[in-house]
């Protein structure tokens, strides 16, 4: 079933189409929320908010454009709002944070943990485009659609995010020495 058909059926009040739309996008939305918020409970709440917004404004969706970036755009905006609300509210004690389990088990897990931590330390815009590109597999055009910015801006932000990340990995000594030798004359 195409996006346009599913949306039309949702607008007509078809419960089956509503369920299908939720099942089609909930994984992307939830995954993005987890990565942007770093908190499973917040991500779950924001995912519900996102779908509420989606169904409330489904009538305003432009059928000539793809649905996925539109839904993810709502998710990015809701995450931004949630993060802003959280930063203004009282800070929880560290032990009350229900952060995703990122304890490194072996070298690769440690590396993944380190990269995730570095991504979390990026500026919000950089982190969003990095997550959308490298973790959610979105193209430049789709990301531009999601965040409502030109493709050139998306590329600039992503390149800067990568450079920061590479320099972070270098500074943390997470580059194997034997790999380094292969570039030497």
């Amino acid at each position: 079933m195409t996006d346009a058909v599913i949306v039309r059926r949702c607008l007509a009040g078809d419960p089956g189409a509503t369920r299908e739309l939720v099942e089609r996008f909930q994984k992307d939305v939830y995954g993005l929320c987890v990565r942007l918020l770093g908190h499973h409970q917040d991500a779950e709440d924001v995912t519900q908010e996102v779908f509420l917004r989606v169904f409330r404004s489904l009538g305003r969706w432009d059928a000539t454009r793809p649905l996925r970036p539109w839904v993810l755009g709502i998710a990015v905006n809701r995450c931004r709002t949630c993060a802003g609300r959280r930063s203004r509210g009282p800070e929880l004690a560290d032990y009350l944070h229900e952060a995703p389990d990122r304890r490194p088990g072996d070298d690769s897990a440690e590396l993944t943990h380190e990269i995730r931590a570095a991504v979390d330390g990026l500026r919000d815009d950089y982190r969003t485009v990095f997550v959308l590109f490298h973790e959610r597999g979105q193209s430049y055009d789709e990301i531009a659609e999601v965040i409502g910015r030109p493709v050139g801006t998306v590329k600039t932000w992503l390149h800067r995010a990568r450079l920061e990340l590479l320099d972070h990995l270098r500074s943390r000594g997470l580059v194997a020495e034997e790999e380094a030798k292969e570039f030497k004359v």
Binding site: Q26, K27, A109, L111, T112, V119, L163, L166, L169, A180
Partner: peptide, 30 residues
């Protein structure tokens, strides 16, 4: 150094986009 870090990042990227397990009952709640 950046070239070496790029190789490291390329090796780690597949682990980053591991799908997150959906919480039980999320669909029903939505």
């Amino acid at each position: 150094g950046r070239a070496r870090a790029t190789r490291t990042l390329l090796a780690a990227l597949p682990a980053l986009d591991e799908p997150d397990t959906l919480p039980i009952g999320l669909t029903g709640a939505i």
